[in-house]
Simulated assay, not measured.
Amino acid sequence: MTDPALEIDSVSKRYGDIVALDSVTFDVRAGELFGFVGSNGAGKTTTMRIALGVLAADSGEVRFDGKPITHQTRTHIGYMPEERGLYPKMKVLDQLVYLAELHGLTSDEAHQSAENWIGRLGLKERRTEEVQKLSLGNQQRVQLAAALVHDPNVLVLDEPFSGLDPIAVDVMTEVLREKASTGVPVIFSSHQLDLVERLCDRVGIIRSGRMVACGSVAELTADAGSLLVVTAPHAPGGWASNLPGVRIVSERDATVVLELSPGTDDQAVLTAALNTGPVTEFSRRRRSLTDLFRDAVNAPERAPA
């Protein structure tokens, strides 16, 4: 197993009586793509800002390669905030060069790196335009370039795929995989759970400031069992609600997704479905990250510490 590169260790943060983070602990390993997911207000952005040193934790520690994060360490972190963090009236190239120089690159190095990322991210025709005149999707590309232009050792990205069209998503995905392949730990938050599931090595789920799950999707769903998908065109709504050992996960039109308790006979479910008329689909489906996230968010919440 690869040693942790970025460690969030028992980090807590309060705002008066509001618990923003409650002993949040996880790590992002070298060369790993780590998806950080949760509902709005769950604590994702607060965690990332503490990792960057923008916010101070009330307790706990953030470490990189086993050592506490320092100002010097932070100069080697690439950060992409969810809100636009660019100078709107600066031209794209000028902005990237300026940010690279702030991180210690020489003027020549800064220009070379800026031009490289402008080309990689499909911004060549926009390089002399003001950021404020770009589409939101292109602003997002510039934001990513700003996080990468100084060749960071860690990438921390808050909703990097927000507002991107499918082609831009593919470009962003390729870039993140490429950076991870060089040993850079990459953590990003996203509400696009299908993308997180497809892209990430591991996933952390945060709820109300507490980590409720962390691991690969396969690990997190290993004990959860599979789901049963049944399509019965003539069945009345809620036909499966009274079946013993069966929980309705979702129901849309004629298709219902069911979770069966251990030991429940799926053939009894099939018989009940056939009693309503023809059955056009009866299949097992592996639980997805979306299923896992829904369970984690809807689970009973424990009292704060």
Rank of each mutant, 00 (worst) to 15 (best):
E7L: 10
D9A: 13
A232F: 07
P68I: 09
R74Y: 03
N116D: 12
S189T: 00
D151Q: 09
G237N: 13
L21W: 01
G209P: 02
E174F: 02
L227M: 02
R284D: 11
D194M: 01
A213H: 06
E109Q: 15
T231G: 07
S261M: 13
G78Y: 08
E115D: 15
S107L: 12
E197F: 01
G104V: 00
G215T: 01
D291K: 12
E219N: 12
T2N: 11
R252I: 10
A299V: 00
D158F: 11
E251A: 15
K124R: 15
Q143Y: 06
V279Y: 05
T45Y: 07
I18F: 10
P185E: 14
P88W: 10
G38H: 04
Y98F: 15
L176C: 07
I118H: 09
S190R: 04
T73Q: 07
F34N: 02
H234D: 14
A299N: 02
E130K: 14
S216H: 09
A30N: 02
E115T: 14
R126A: 15
N153Q: 15
G78E: 08
I77W: 08
M172S: 00
A268H: 03
R126T: 02
V175S: 05
K67A: 15
L260W: 06
D65C: 09
R202F: 06
E197A: 15
A222T: 04
R127Y: 00
A114E: 10
R247S: 15
M172L: 14
R84G: 04
L292A: 14
L228R: 09
Q139G: 12
D108S: 15
N242C: 07
L195W: 01
L52C: 14
Y87N: 14
E101Q: 14
I69L: 11
S12D: 02
T25H: 01
A20F: 02
